[in-house]
């Protein structure tokens, strides 16, 4: 039992170490020409555009539900007029980036893990190495950069739709006009809310791409390995996302609390 636990702990640290080496290799390869711009654009389209509908629908529903759920409590305090402030701040600061990142972790990280895993299993990556193409640069760097660049955009669009969902509830339940709702929200928000959230979402995107690629790139041989790669990519990414969120909140507090 103790041996098993120690082995697990050791395995955990080894995985962290591997991921760190993987990240280091990414940075080395990313700054070294030649750059795969065409592939980067294709990946951006794949990651960004094809996740857009999913992110928008999820965010819209989150905004709607958050407003509906917190409305009765605010009514008890007689502070319904504070609803836009509360919903706006919670969506922009925390819920928007985290929900979008989790949705993308589920869709993109698992996709990358499965894709690269199957390439590893079918020895396509080895074939690329043999043919002289740098598979890391072509497969990993482009994907990680694409997620890093696309996630903040998805977060901002998701925030917008979540606020719209909340505004819709306020419009029908509280007779608050859209103009009043958004004026109140933008009054309540400051750069201190928006900048840390946006910076955080770059890291989220990086983590999603990196963990997905790592899991796929080092996929174990066999058909089961692909499934495991896709599955662990999602689980590991979600965990890393929360750790990053935790650290980001602490750091942003220093700069924007006072």
């Amino acid at each position: 039992m103790t041996l098993e636990f120690t082995k697990n702990i050791r395995q955990f640290f080894i995985e962290i170490g591997e991921l760190s080496y993987f990240a280091g290799r990414f940075f080395r390869e990313a700054v070294k020409p030649p750059f795969e711009f065409k592939e980067l654009l294709r990946q951006c389209y794949q990651m960004g555009n094809r996740s857009l509908v999913l992110v928008l629908v999820t965010s819209f529903i989150i905004g709607l539900v958050l407003d509906l759920q917190s409305r009765p409590t605010m009514e008890q305090f007689g502070a319904v007029s504070m609803m836009p402030n509360m919903v706006g701040i919670s969506i922009v600061r925390e819920l928007g980036p985290v929900i979008t990142a989790l949705v993308c972790a589920g869709r993109i990280a698992s996709g990358i893990g499965a894709e690269l895993g199957s390439m590893r299993v079918t020895e396509q990556i080895d074939a690329m190495e043999v043919s002289g193409t740098n598979p890391f640069k072509y497969l990993v760097v482009t994907r990680v950069m694409a997620t890093t660049l696309m996630l903040p955009l998805l977060v901002i669009l998701g925030d917008g739709l979540a606020l719209y969902g909340s505004a819709l509830v306020e419009y029908f339940k509280g007779a608050v006009s859209f103009q009043l709702y958004f004026t109140t929200v933008f009054d309540a928000l400051s750069y201190g809310d928006l900048i840390p959230a946006t910076a955080k979402s770059f890291f989220f995107g990086f983590a999603i791409g990196l963990v997905g690629c790592y899991k796929g790139y080092y996929c174990k041989k066999g058909t089961a390995g692909v499934g495991v790669a896709a599955n662990t990519a999602v689980v590991f990414t979600s965990m890393v996302l929360f750790v990053i969120d935790f650290v980001a909140v602490f750091i942003s507090d220093i700069f924007y609390d006072l």
Partner: peptide, 29 residues
């Protein structure tokens, strides 16, 4: 290829570094 020992050390370093960053951020806050 890195050895398992090297990876383990790096893993510990990264986790410890992250914890230190969080602690530092808390103290600074």
């Amino acid at each position: 290829e890195k050895t398992a020992k090297e990876k383990f050390r790096l893993g510990i370093f990264v986790v410890a570094g992250t914890i230190l960053i969080v602690l530092a951020a808390y103290l600074i806050g």
